[in-house]
Amino acid sequence: MKHSGKLISVLVPLVSVMMAFVIGCAIIAILGASPVTALQALWTGAFGTARNISTTLSRATPLIFTSLCACFAYRCGVFNLGGEGQFMMGSIICCYIATRTGLTGLPAILLCLLAGAVFGGLWAMIPGILKVFRGQNEMIISIMLNYVASLFMSVIYTNWLRDGTVPQTAAVPDETRLTRIFGRATTGFLIALVVGALIYYFLFNTSMGFQLRAVGLNMTTAEYNGFAVKKYILLSFIVSGAIAGLGGSAELLGTQYRLISGFASGYGFDGVAMALIGQLHPLATMAVAIFFAALRVGSTAMQTATGVPTSVSDIIQALVIVFTVAGLAMVKLPSFKTALARLHMKKEAA
């Protein structure tokens, strides 16, 4: 019994990925293409050349931020589904600083990143406060706030910071953009890695992180053991929002350069899904984000090579999520546990 829990937590996502790929391949075959060719193209497209790898890492960067955002909040037992809104709020303030204040270069970059994190954190404070002081459902509120943020961003690029006839903002000036360190991957990717490592260290190597996890796993026990439960919940919201906001800044300065319709759309929910598949482990979560980015980047090559539309890759991604979360719920069922225990007993008896 000792390691079966950990084994299952690795097995469930792996089996889910396999099932998703089997279905994906079946779809590809039905569409008249060779699954082998398609998968090869997918792989090459994502990791085949240094340039492709860099594209994958660049695409993974915002996903890492939003998935870490979800991961951190979940660790404290709260469901922050508002990563997208917090990401956008970060990018909005970043856009303002980068294009309107006249600041350029490193000072502008540092200020942008800091302000992005602060704004993301403040935006996340709203559901946090309502949760802690009004007992409200943080999930519904954070979703509603996603739309508010998204519409606010729309005001920004269609009105307030609009530049020219097309509804979009001005581009971040060249000298304020993040440095490309490797192909398309920028320092933004490095920042994401550092944030992930810091979260990992915080959660598993500090007393506060330990207590935060305890709050997330059993709030009553945490309270009885003297932990400041409300403080941790609020803190987890703010930090989680700050991570997303920082990601918003990094994405704007590193990849997108301007706010435009569709910016960051879907990143929030994707992030939550990746955190779940990564079992709320920050390092695993980052790996999952890179995996999903690879599926997205590689799908273009797959389309070119086989004519199968890129959205097959979206289906595979969605199925991975569908299976993993259902699988994780299943293994928690008492009946499943009993069955597992029985299996063990039989094995031991044999």
Partner: peptide, 9 residues
Amino acid sequence: NKMGLVGDM
């Protein structure tokens, strides 16, 4: 279980 332990730890 509810007040004394964090069962998942």
